[in-house]
Design a protein around this nucleic acid. Sequence first.
DNA 1: GAGCTAGCTCTACCTGACTTCAGGTTCAGA
DNA 2: TCTGAACCTGAAGTCAGGTAGAGCTAGCTC
Lengths: 155, 155
Amino acid sequence: MRSTDLLTLGEVVHRSGFTPSALRFYEREGLLTASRTSGGQRRYARHVLRRLAFIRAARNIGLSLEEVREALRRLPDERTPTRADWTAISRDWRIRLDEQIEALERLRDGLDSCIGCGCLSLQHCHMSNPDDRVAAFGPGAVALPAALRRGPDHS
Amino acid sequence: MRSTDLLTLGEVVHRSGFTPSALRFYEREGLLTASRTSGGQRRYARHVLRRLAFIRAARNIGLSLEEVREALRRLPDERTPTRADWTAISRDWRIRLDEQIEALERLRDGLDSCIGCGCLSLQHCHMSNPDDRVAAFGPGAVALPAALRRGPDHS
DNA sequence: GAGCTAGCTCTACCTGACTTCAGGTTCAGA
DNA sequence: TCTGAACCTGAAGTCAGGTAGAGCTAGCTC
């Protein structure tokens, strides 16, 4: 079925699980590259599959596309990630995940201390007091998924 | 300073930590109500503070405004949440948080099993295989924060 | 009754990550 | 050579959860 080792858009769609529009979008955004046929259709080298795997994993961890782009900059297009690349990056991700888990656990503990109290006081309640927001959500915690990042909206 | 027990927009802003635009937005969206002066300015009953505390807590847990609206529908506008209301709802939230934490832990465990392997295989890797997505992310897990919900994008 | 702050509405805009659409083109197999 | 599926582009749309600004008004204080 293949006369070359290049993949069509459809094949990449099939094998990666991304939609055509997502693949085109990622290319526009510089996360992916593809060569073209004389007629202008995309042809993908096999290593894009690995790149896409990387992208999906990163998105699952909660990285933005911008952050994925940054991580991919370290992995030149011409080669697939080495074991060392992946080890370094996945250690970073592990740290992020731990932070996210901790943040949720703090939230849960706060909630536990609230169940049954019916307080929901703006002054004192762990769950709603705008000045008692979860400690980790400082400027350093930028990478948390949006849902974990929320603080008071003013200022 | 108060001739009545109604609060101005500014007072609610001050005491809740929400911005004026957020309060107006919530009103448009039906999460809040306010009466008006003859001149058209908003005047809030005191219990909106509690409602807002509830909203902030819910948002911290990761609920969408739509879900908050749903939860608030059970708390008629005229009364503040009873202890029973709050107990029931916070138990739900506790379950959600546990699910989110578990999902992240599964992700972390998958990552651990990956560190150093350099695999990232679309066929086998825990972190990227679209057919091996985290089990909890079924149709029932709709409420997870977006970053935890991602599966393959097709279909 | 002047002055000023706080408030009003309405419309437009923002980010992120894509999707959708219209209208046309290419490619592979028979 | 023909045909149908796959593919192309660029612009616009979507969604959530708001924010920003323009131009005008209310209401409190002196």
